[in-house]
Amino acid sequence: MTPGNTPARREDSTAGAGPEVRAEILSEADIARTIDRIAHQILEKAGDEPVVLLGIPTRGVYLARRLADRIATFSGRPCPVGSLDTTLYRDDLRRRPPRALEETSIPAGGLDNLTCVLVDDVLYSGRTIRAALDALRDHGRPSAVQLAVLVDRGHRQLPIRADYVGKNIPTAADDDVAVRLTESDGRDAVELIRA
């Protein structure tokens, strides 16, 4: 099984047979601290330049909203946040069953000449981010595009790296990294599931 044929973020962590090992990598408090840190890093790097956050559905959107909230608190300025569905830009559409599209919403001011930070929960093969970069190009021309992820689990298949990483987790290809967020899962946690 290679990352390219596997969903980078498996939503159902019970897949696979046999006993599995579950380890909590980040707790609720860890996640909160991590988001605070990334918010500071984004502000530090941006300086006075305006920043817009675009979350990649589903959990990237929740993370983007939390980050925007923290950035607004730390900077005293509202931080525009939107979502960017990458499904229509994926390179594996012919190989996968049809899937429902997720929300795309670009903040009212658009993206032109802004620093745009893409936000996702897990960085894995890099294919989702490639699709997001393609999608972004059709929506406008940001002055810079950056990437923030909660977890980088390695196994990149494309020359893509994150600008802000919550935690690097060394994984095997058939491991599963499950990100749980209150908005969708009722609790905050990051777990490593080893088949």
């Binding site: 569905d85 229509l88 429902a100 599209l101 919403s105 406008g140």
Partner: peptide
Amino acid sequence: LDTAERLEQAMSGREVRKLPT
């Protein structure tokens, strides 16, 4: 119908009214 809603969302207000899908 939901997919059509999303497509309209994805296309709205953009410069490039085309998807590579």
